[in-house]
């Protein structure tokens, strides 16, 4: 197990009534940078824990977008995951080694 001290401080480790049982620690990539998360989390949760808030930029006005609803209902959180654009990362489970990239506009299919 990795030591506690390596946790980014986006995680709540002490809570008066909840205990967080985290799964296996996973390494994944955000814009080619290696970052860590846990099995059982969504990609969005792992990104926010790593201090990442901007998930994409819009087509015309290039406005930044993050998540909004976190339950797969609003389409605010679309990113490129393993080359696939428009992936809803607030419901997409984090997988070991996955490559997550910020998306601009509508995304292009390879």
């Amino acid at each position: 197990m990795p030591s506690r001290t390596s946790e980014p401080d986006g995680r709540l480790d002490r809570h008066p009534i909840l205990t967080f049982v985290r799964g296996r620690r996973l390494r994944f990539f955000f814009n080619d940078r290696p970052v860590y998360g846990y099995e059982g989390e969504t990609i969005a949760a792992a990104l926010v824990a790593n201090g990442v808030k901007v998930f994409r930029h819009t087509e015309k006005l290039k406005r930044a977008r993050g998540f909004f609803c976190a339950v797969g209902k609003c389409s605010s959180c679309l990113m490129i995951v393993d080359g696939r654009p428009n992936t809803m990362v607030c419901t997409e489970p984090l997988r070991d080694g996955c490559r997550v990239e910020q998306q601009t506009g509508r995304g292009r299919l390879a």
Binding site: D9, G10, R11, L12, D13, H15, L18, F20, R22, E41, T42, A45, V48, A49, A70, V71
Partner: peptide, 9 residues
């Protein structure tokens, strides 16, 4: 969801 389910700030 973030703070209570995933323990993320």
């Amino acid at each position: 969801t973030l703070m209570n389910v995933y323990g993320v700030r």
